[in-house]
Design a protein around this nucleic acid. Structure first.
Lengths: 111, 111
DNA sequence: AAGCGTTATTCGAACATAAATACAACGCTA
DNA sequence: TAGCGTTGTATTTATGTTCGAATAACGCTT
């Protein structure tokens, strides 16, 4: 028996959480939304809609894309996206640590 | 923009979280699974399956039910269920407080 | 013994969500 | 100018969730 948690930010609907985080890290790494999607065994259209929804909700752009050209184009993160990812990193590691402690405090004996 | 989190306990599949918690509180309050389901605008069959799944995963009974008799019967919580609910209460309020602080620390300026 | 309101259980239908597919547009390259 | 790999978008398909109906059993009440 284990603790599971999902934490995200939302406006009118889900905006940013673990899914967008991982996807954006892959984009940063690979320079392409298409490659990122393939790497995560995800369809391009899903990857695309994840990012578009997040951008719409957050109110700022997460990726800067070029279509056509050498290599067909590509995508890279905006500086706002980069700082968001870094903040999210720190947030999650702190949160995970604390929640694990709380779980042990309250449930370890019971479950 | 706000922080949303869902926290639950799982074994092989979801076992106990917010949904079962609220439902069990209603059962405690109303003495009947049927009334609890109606009160939550939920079908009886859904309420029933929530509790059965939780019991199966957790490995102990959550409700004690009587069928027939005056008023048709009813359900009440086992003592294990009561302590589980109380622990969950404390867990959630502590967790919520801490997560809110963390959210403000990391995201309040950014989002 | 008939009636009542509950628990217990299963099943298919309806609905909502997620995912795959297909195709157009873009701009460099050769 | 044909081809490539990408982004962008709509349409279709698949998957999962939830509801509601149907049925049975139970034991008190009248």
């Amino acid at each position: 028996m284990k603790l599971v948690y999902k934490i995200w930010v939302e406006g009118k609907t889900k905006a940013f959480g673990e899914g967008p985080y991982e996807l954006l890290r892959k984009v940063e790494q690979l320079g392409s939304l298409n490659k990122a999607a393939q790497d995560m065994n995800m369809s391009y259209s899903k990857a695309w809609s994840i990012i578009k929804r997040a951008e719409k909700e957050l109110g700022f752009k997460l990726v800067e894309s070029n279509t056509g050209g050498a290599g067909g184009g590509g995508s890279c993160l905006t500086s706002q996206a980069k700082t968001l990812l870094n903040k999210y990193d720190e947030f999650c590691s702190e949160a995970g640590e604390i929640l694990t402690k709380l779980y042990n405090k309250y449930f370890s004996e019971l479950l």
